[in-house]
């Protein structure tokens, strides 16, 4: 089913002080679901997000959110349907969690009765009911991020923009956050999340990803589309046999191993299968496992950078 894009940018460019090109002709399309906006530190992710929320003005290009011009008169209407969580939230530390939610509710002019029940639901959702009367200054990093999510959800937004929200969290906090975001996705919200921590995007089951480096979009699409585009497969072969490793190294883009498997990265899995089949027949090797699968996000990310280096000469930092 085709769905209308939630966010679209067209040749978005940001030049700081006439010399630093932070974002370079970035055109992305975010459809409903989870969109992972990936890139190394300094790639231009936060600059892009700040342009999306209207904090920075693009030097060139256009932004459409919910089909409306996000740089024009509709900005206030768009912002009523957006929730934003910054990388390092510095919410009002003198407030308690509950007071913050009440305050943000007043910013959105939510009627008092509705606000009370929504605050209660959100505190339950982010598991901060017991800490609602505590000052935010006394919250842990994970609790601050969770109250950040709650404040971003107070207006029941259609789009959540999250900037590196998991980078300061411990593994348990990250796991909770991933589950929370998956739940929000199931409620029909679109989540635009920027991060450089790739396994989380994998765990969130992102519908599509955009990979950015030095302000330029390198790859964009669903994991499936990107795998098809790159044509590279990961083949797991068991048992790991020296002969197999020796013969396959000429046909593999990359070769590695685990305790009992050979891991082959190849853009021609059929040929790999033929070779494995022939060697196993000739040498009486019983193949227990031959699984060909697409690249995982981390591998896609690295692959995208390899291609960029070769094709357009962009150097990864």
């Amino acid at each position: 089913m085709m769905s209308d894009p939630i966010i679209q940018t067209f040749n978005l460019t940001k030049l700081f002080d006439q010399k630093t090109l932070a974002v370079n002709k970035l055109s992305i399309t975010v459809k409903p679901g989870i969109y992972g906006f990936l890139g190394p530190n300094g790639a231009g992710k936060t600059t892009t997000i700040k342009m999306l929320i209207g904090s920075l003005f693009p030097t060139e290009g256009r932004i459409e959110i919910f089909g409306k011009d996000a740089l024009g008169k509709d900005i206030a209407d768009i912002h009523k349907r957006i929730g934003y969580v910054p990388e390092n939230p510095t919410y009002f530390m003198d407030m308690t969690g509950e007071e913050l939610l009440e305050y943000v509710g007043s910013v959105f002019k939510i009627p008092q009765q509705k606000l009370i029940s929504r605050i209660s639901n959100l505190l339950r959702l982010v598991d901060l009911q017991d800490a609602k009367s505590r000052k935010i200054a006394k919250y842990s990093a994970g609790m601050k991020q969770r109250i950040g999510i709650a404040q971003a959800l107070i207006n029941d937004p259609d789009l959540l923009i999250l900037d590196e929200i998991t980078s300061n969290l411990d593994p348990l906090g990250r796991s909770k956050m991933v589950n929370l975001l998956k739940g929000l996705k199931n409620e029909g919200k679109t989540i635009f999340i920027s991060t450089h921590i790739l396994p989380e995007i994998e765990k969130m089951e992102a519908d599509s990803i955009g990979i950015i480096n030095q302000g330029q979009l390198i790859l964009e699409g669903s994991i499936k589309e990107l795998n098809e585009k790159l044509g590279t497969k990961i083949i797991k072969i068991s048992p790991k046999h020296d002969l197999l490793r020796e013969k396959l190294k000429h046909y593999a883009l990359n070769i590695g191993e685990t305790a009992d498997e050979l891991i082959i990265e190849s853009d021609n899995p059929d040929q790999v299968w033929k070779i494995v089949n022939r060697i196993s027949m000739e040498n009486d090797i019983i193949i227990n496992k031959f699984i060909s699968s697409g690249l995982e996000i981390e591998q896609l990310f690295m692959k995208a950078f390899d291609i960029t280096k070769k094709d357009i000469g962009v150097e990864n930092k």
Binding site: D77, I82, Y84, T90, V104, V107, I161
Partner: peptide, 14 residues
């Protein structure tokens, strides 16, 4: 500097 203004601008506040 501390991002409060940026955060406010993501809300319907001009």
């Amino acid at each position: 500097r501390n991002g409060t203004l940026s955060w406010f601008l993501s809300k319907p506040i001009r």
